[in-house]
Design a protein around this nucleic acid. Structure first.
Lengths: 369, 369
DNA sequence: TGATTTTCCGTGAACGTTCACGCACCTGTC
DNA sequence: GACAGGTGCGTGAACGTTCACGGAAAATCA
């Protein structure tokens, strides 16, 4: 009968937080209410077999003591509510929030909890993120940037769904058909009459690095950035697709930000002044490219057409509005959650049929091309 | 000595997820390795007092059996690692990701876990979000849209930090000095020579509704939207500030999206063709306003200046680049986490001094005003 | 050799909750 | 007045892990 924290009169009536005093347990409540554990359980969980007034009294005492059932004890005895980790490199990049939002929504619908990590800002890697999340979750969805195998090793038998990664040991995988995307974009530009094409790739980051087979560097064009080769899966697809179509493609490389892409585009236009069609790694970088084009006095799309990639909402707000290879990001989230659901329920075999999904970009024509 | 799942030879070598079979416990591992519980614990947690080869053998067996320590049992005996809930109405709105990213980063630095909920898309309310998160977390940070008291009641004594909400029973609160923001924006427009000002408010949502004292509807100007009154705290501040400065302010109301704001701005310009300075509820809506101004053939800022609010990265990518009342969203996240930290450690008293923080917007001059 | 430390490992207890029972009491029914 | 069937509540056991011990064997030292 010893309330664990200060006396009740010190509170401010409503249940304001009373500091990190020792937590009240179900036994404290039981003692204070003059009942047993089980009755407290019945009162707190809306179970039958308890008199109305007893329930009320117990609830009052519980509130008074600031009692909150231990999620650990509860989980231990009841079996886990599934909680999934969501590992994302940078929420600040507008690509990810739409995806994350979709995952959270659909996970919540299934009664799951989502433990989120945004690992890019602290300079951490995907593997470190998984390491941080692993002890807390039953499964994981993530853009891990090349750490697939390490991540699956950390998770052991727990399902892992990776996005935009080459094949690996992950239980499930969602990837994108960049060949299709490249053909659609380059084809559209050619049909428009563009003859001097360029592609601006994202600079080396962990993501996609594993896709570059050693010794095979892609058919690269002219690197105007810092003379780096094409490193991303997207870049490779564009290089291949251009080569197959007999098109010359100037390739530049930029870190992932609009400001960087702006600079790189500026240099690209100096070195290749006749460029009349540009595809950019993603919409954010495309926004930077548009800026550079405007600065150089070029009209878009009249002098130079621009196609972005991913289809984030930002594109519609730019001037001119951005033509883009759009991905329905909510759909990507849905695919990831449903795949994970299948893996959790056992209806999909890890690494087996149905555990790999390939999604396609859709060319959305707006003003810029 | 009975492995809980299928025989080991059925696995594919590397630890691929083997389906939702009954989980292996520490005892299974101990039996299979021929040691005791405690030795398994020592092996798994890098504790001293175990022979190198024993550790290795136990770890191998653990991997073989797909053993993952129960976070519930662990949490129960070790005392909780704190996990905080993060409740956000809409990750799709570019305002929130930057904030969320900052919260996740700083929480992770402290060894906390972040359980995220994005409650807007399912049509849920802030209170429902808290209800969903509550059993899983030790504290909560959130943009709850008016459900402050209900949320604190659900959480009991656990700390709650609410953002952009009027005073309530929350343990901690972070709010914004909209009076200051309004003066800065209107002052700047006046100094620029703008004489016919307008403010585009966000339409009624739960957020901020509680700030409208019954009977006091703010000195509203001309509502060109659907004749609604000013409902947000921001709107009230602008109305008050305009009245104090003797400025006429046309007020329109729009749902929160760039497309909606575009339509509303179009109507505003029809009804008030001489408008030469507009402040918009947030940057996203301001992007829509810019679109409408361009459509109407007006030059920005020459014919009409525009000021947005919040300072999301989008603003820099628009044409013209958006002048805005910027908030450092990472700073907001930092404030929230530090406040929560203080509440958790007890160095800040809930509702006491230091539990309420007021942040100010800073006028960032770019091209649009 | 015997005493002392060190290394390695095992056993009881505890964390806080729910589940499966079982017991006591009340309300009818024949 | 005994029996059946509820209603309301309490007690042992179990969930899976770590902590605090304690003990045996091995290593070290006098």
């Amino acid at each position: 009968m010893t309330p664990p924290s200060g006396d009740a009169s010190s509170g401010r009536g409503t249940g304001a937080y009373a500091g990190p005093a020792k937590r009240a347990t179900i036994l404290d409540v039981a003692a204070a209410a003059g009942v047993s554990r089980q009755t407290v359980t019945r009162a707190m969980n809306a179970m039958p077999g308890i008199r109305r007034e007893t329930r009320q009294r117990v609830q009052d005492v519980a509130r008074e003591l600031g009692y909150t059932p231990s999620r650990f004890a509860k989980g231990l005895v009841q079996g886990a509510r599934t909680s999934v980790g969501l590992s994302i490199p940078d929420l600040t990049n507008p690509y990810y929030p739409a995806f994350a939002s979709s995952v959270v929504e659909l996970a919540t619908q299934r009664g799951w909890h989502v433990v989120m990590d945004d690992y890019g800002h602290g300079g951490a890697t995907g593997a470190e993120s998984v390491e941080h999340l692993a002890p807390q979750v039953d499964a994981l969805i993530g853009y891990l940037g090349g750490a697939t195998d390490e991540a699956q090793a950390i998770l052991g038998r727990r399902p892992l769904v990776v996005l935009d990664q080459p094949a690996g040991s992950a239980s499930g995988r969602i990837s994108f058909d960049y060949g299709h995307a490249a053909q659609a974009a380059l084809g559209h530009l050619q049909a428009r009459g563009c003859r001097h094409l360029a592609y601006i790739d994202r600079a080396d980051s962990e993501a996609g690095r594993a896709t570059v087979a050693p010794g095979h560097r892609g058919e690269r064009g002219h690197a105007s950035g810092s003379a780096q080769e094409v490193v991303t899966a997207r870049g490779q697809a564009f290089a291949r697709s251009a080569a197959a179509a007999g098109v010359v493609l100037a390739v530049s490389v930029s870190p992932e930000s609009a400001a960087d892409a702006r600079q790189v585009t500026r240099r690209l236009l100096e070195e290749h002044p006749r460029t009349d069609g540009i595809v950019v790694f993603n919409d954010l970088m495309a926004a930077g490219a548009l800026k550079a084009l405007a600065e150089s006095g070029r009209a878009v799309p009249a002098d130079c057409a621009v196609i972005g990639m991913d289809g984030i909402p930002l594109g519609e707000l730019l001037t001119p509005e951005l033509t883009t290879l759009a991905l329905d990001l909510r759909e990507v989230g849905r695919a990831a959650v449903e795949l994970l659901d299948g893996l959790l329920t056992g209806s999909i075999e890890p690494g087996g049929p149905g555990s790999e999904l390939v999604l396609r970009h859709r060319l959305v024509l707006r003003q810029s091309a």
